[in-house]
Every structure is written in structure tokens, then in C-alpha cells.
Nucleic acid binder design. Sequence first.
DNA 1: TTATATGCAAAAGCTTTGCATGGGT
DNA 2: ACCCATGCAAAGCTTTTGCATATAA
Lengths: 151, 151
Amino acid sequence: MTAGGADRDRWLAHASARMTAAGLRAGAARTAVVETLAREGQCLLTAAEIAALSRDGRAASIATVYRVVEELSELGLLHRLDGRDGVARFEIADPEHHHHHAVDERTGAVRPFHDEDLEAAIAAVARRLGLELTGHDVVLRGTWPQGPPPT
Amino acid sequence: MTAGGADRDRWLAHASARMTAAGLRAGAARTAVVETLAREGQCLLTAAEIAALSRDGRAASIATVYRVVEELSELGLLHRLDGRDGVARFEIADPEHHHHHAVDERTGAVRPFHDEDLEAAIAAVARRLGLELTGHDVVLRGTWPQGPPPT
DNA sequence: TTATATGCAAAAGCTTTGCATGGGT
DNA sequence: ACCCATGCAAAGCTTTTGCATATAA
């Protein structure tokens, strides 16, 4: 990771611009949600968590959270991952910090990781299939012999 | 794919043996579900679809389908994938036909694929993370310039 | 005979939607 | 002014669970 909140600000600015360009307006709740995501949305938040984290001053209702993440996802600003527990999780779509997820089967703990060879292999497969890639997810499941390392 | 129903039979036999060994009994509904999966569970069926396909002679209630797929998953005989539509899909865990999924964003059509380099990259990542792999999913999303090729 | 399997119906969640109100531009 | 944004509550779904009954072993 690079310096402090630079990345967050960059995504926030980008997101705001794209949303404005899409004809969306900056209401209080949506602003709170987007700021929450910029601040803490690096890795897999549920809608409920986003709502809770946005309850600093004003709240954002769960309905609004779902509406906002839907909009952000459609604009390609947010990634969505559906977990085995039937709960959707969201995280910022930041090309600079592209990553995937390794899940500890015993604890459910998630460790994000990045791997260039893996990305290359994925790109190669897509090329072979004649597929114009717009997104991809990789989830690894297993156990850490010595217990999950600190994130 | 190799000859006719050999693979299906192999999985079916394996599944039956494992379930018996696990102390499970062979009721009519469970048998129907397992046979349905052996026959048509090569790639991503929903619980509702499994139930419908099992309604040849006897039916299997949706509750039973969920109970059976849960058991099969825990025994490592079935893979589970959670889709964006909030619906879980299941497919046989057959080491001989291991594959992943490429989804057409426009139509939702799914094309299964296999790639050795991708598998190698995944194994390498797991090794690097110190993770003992028990499962992994890859989902590619995008569009086919000439429309999705026939499955 | 005893523990498991099954179906039905109810419960439990998460997510979406209708509607009236408030707010941005 | 007009249209979008928001909250609340209700509806919609899939998935899970309780319970009584049937059935393997």
C-alpha cells in the first residue's frame, strides 16, 4: 500500500465524478455510504456493515445501502461477492489494489492476496476462450497448518 | 468427456459408498436426488432444478434436496457456488472433470472450462500463502464478441 | 426396534420494492 | 419546478428448521 489516504481519496473522487456523470445526485445518505466505502471498503463488507459504519452522524437505511451498492456495481466502481452464508459482500473496485480472497475453512477468516502469475493465467484463459473479460473472481478455501496468519 | 455414462456411474458408486460409510441411509428421496445429480449434475443446478429433475416417479421435496446437497457438500462430493441472483448452484465434485465457469454478462449463459496453467497458478499461490487447499472457485465474467459459442 | 429420512408448513434471513416525503440542481 | 434520493414498512425469495410420520437396517 502507498501513502495514507491517497488511494481512498482517488477512488472517492473517481466514484463521485462517475456518479454525477451518470445523472445521480449527491444526497446525504449516498454520500455517507460512498465515503464509508472509500474509508473502509477495501475488502468485503456486508450491506449491514456498511449501514452501521455510515451511522456516524446521519444514518443510511439498509434500503438505501442496497440501492447505492447496486448503482456503484453497475458503474463498475464496486465488486460484489456472494458468500456461502447467503450474504452479499462488497468492496471497492480499485485497479491499483486488485486482489482475491483466501478463506480459512475453520474460522471463516478471509485473507486477501494478489498474484501476478494468477492474473496472467486468467488473462490467457480468457483470450483462449475468446472472452472479453469484464470481471473475475477467485476464491481459495482451505486451512493454514499453523492457524491463519495475521492479515 | 470419455465413454457414455461411465463417469456418472463412477461418481454415483463413490457417492453411495461414502454416504453409507458416513452412516447415512438410502431413502427413496435421497436416492432420487443423488441419481439426478449423477445424471445431470455436471454443471450448476439449483435446488429447485434438482427437485424438478427428480420428479420422475417419486418427488423429492425441496427441503430434502437442501438436506441432501448439504450432506454431499460436507462429504466433498458436491461443489457449491453462490450466484449473484442469491441462488446457490451445485455440481458434482468429479476430479476427472474439474472445471471453472465463464459467464456471459449479457445472457447469463455459463460456459465451463478447464485450464492447466490456471490450476498450476492456483496451486502455486496456495503454496506461497502457506494454505492447505481444500477447494477453489474461479468465475470469469465478460462478453463474447460474436455471441457465446455453443456449450 | 431404533435411529434416520422425509414431507409439510412455518420460520428465518437477506434483499427488493411501493409509496409518500424530503432534497438537490 | 422537476426529478431524484430516502426511509419505512411490506413484500419476495431462497434456504433452514420443527415436528409428526414413515422407513431403512
